[in-house]
């Protein structure tokens, strides 16, 4: 396998890592109004705090996968990074805005003891947690669908070029997957009424995700030149999703979470298998496609990056795993201390 192919896979893995990890915190953030409804205002607030605390120490590290995926694209395929980021301009602008508001929401929500303050940040968290996966899913599907790109590898379309049915389905399906994944995560990390509510939500969301996800992957495979590999990953994704619904109903929440992890990973893999060896398909002319061959960095840069990835990824994975291990306990409303924020 050439280094160029290796880096194509590595970037696929980074996007997978991002969507699997931030996928569940998107799911958790977006269900605040659903699973955060309590018997009264006080109970509701405690429930929302339980939900937020399941991802409290984790979401920030999860988001670094996005920055690393972007950085790796810049370093390994600068032309891909340049065309995609300048091309999907307004979509990425919107992505940045919703991520900023969502992240600040996580950090600031608990810092003032005021219901209005919390309500405002809750909105930011919910909107960001729904919009971000929709935008990322739309963007990644558009790589396969194709967008107007000229001979100089510059994007010549507009925001409307990104709003095609299959890509929008990609966005909605990714959100549905994140929602199910997040509900499994909550069921795995909480106890009491929230856990039961999360499980029943996960079943409903799982059915939606299974339908949307399967339609998306089959559409991509049939319409955009699926290959043996992409059909295998599509099959695994569908089976994993159905299995996760059954496992969740059976009450084995850990395995249900593994199921949606595999499903998201295989959905991203399907997208990348169909894409290869292209990086961005040009709807203007196939000759203008960005490919692994015409968009990559020099061999030396790829070698340096490979060395760094080999040396430091295991360390990063080790301390990330440690973080998850430290905060492994299930949370209930009993674990939520009185608000210590300043009014």
């Amino acid at each position: 396998m050439s280094l160029i192919t290796f880096w194509f896979i590595a970037i696929g893995v980074l996007w997978t890592g991002y969507l699997v990890l931030e996928g569940f915190d998107f799911g958790v953030g977006s269900v605040l109004p659903i699973l955060g409804r309590g018997t009264d205002a006080e109970d509701g607030e405690k429930r929302r705090r339980v939900l937020l605390n399941t991802i409290g120490p984790l979401w920030d590290g999860n988001e670094v996968w996005l920055i690393t995926a972007g950085g790796a694209m810049f370093a390994a395929f600068p032309l891909w990074y340049a065309t995609m980021f300048s091309g999907f301009y307004l979509a990425f602008l919107l992505l940045l805005v919703v991520l900023i508001l969502r992240n600040v929401g996580f950090d600031y929500r608990h810092k003032r003891d005021s219901a209005a303050w919390r309500r405002g940040w809750d909105r930011a968290i919910v909107v960001g947690s729904v919009a971000a996966p929709v935008l990322v899913g739309t963007a990644l599907t558009n790589l396969v669908h194709g967008t107007p790109i000229n001979a100089d590898h510059n994007f010549t379309g507009s925001l409307l070029s990104l709003l095609n049915p299959v890509s929008l389905l990609g966005g909605v399906a990714l959100y549905a997957l994140s929602l199910t994944h997040g509900a499994h995560f909550i069921a795995l990390k909480t106890d009491g009424p929230i856990r039961a509510d999360a499980r029943s939500l996960a079943t409903k969301a799982g059915v939606g995700a299974a339908v949307l996800g399967t339609v998306l992957l089959v559409w991509l495979g049939v319409g955009y030149g699926g290959n043996v590999w992409s059909w295998i990953t599509t099959g695994i994704a569908a089976v994993a999703l159905l299995a996760s619904i059954a496992l969740n109903r059976k009450g084995t929440e850990g395995w249900a979470f593994v199921g949606t992890t595999v499903a998201i990973a295989m959905a991203v893999a399907t997208d990348f298998f169909i894409l290869f060896p292209n990086l961005m398909v040009s709807s203007t002319s196939a000759a203008n496609n960005l490919t692994t061959a015409n968009a990559s960095s020099s061999h030396l840069t790829l070698q340096i990056m490979t060395g760094a990835a080999a040396a430091f990824t295991p360390i990063m994975l080790a301390y990330t795993a440690y973080n998850y291990w430290v905060f492994r306990k299930r949370l209930t409303v009993a674990h939520i201390p009185a608000a210590v924020a300043v009014h």
Binding site: G61, G71, T301, A308, F312, M316
Partner: peptide, 26 residues
């Protein structure tokens, strides 16, 4: 200049941002 400029940015994410974010959470 992505061939040169991209690498330090990728290094920054892999070596520094993960470290900062994960350990600040801890």
């Amino acid at each position: 200049v992505g061939d040169i400029f991209g690498a330090p940015l990728a290094f920054e994410a892999l070596l520094a941002f993960f470290l900062e974010s994960v350990f600040l959470g801890l």
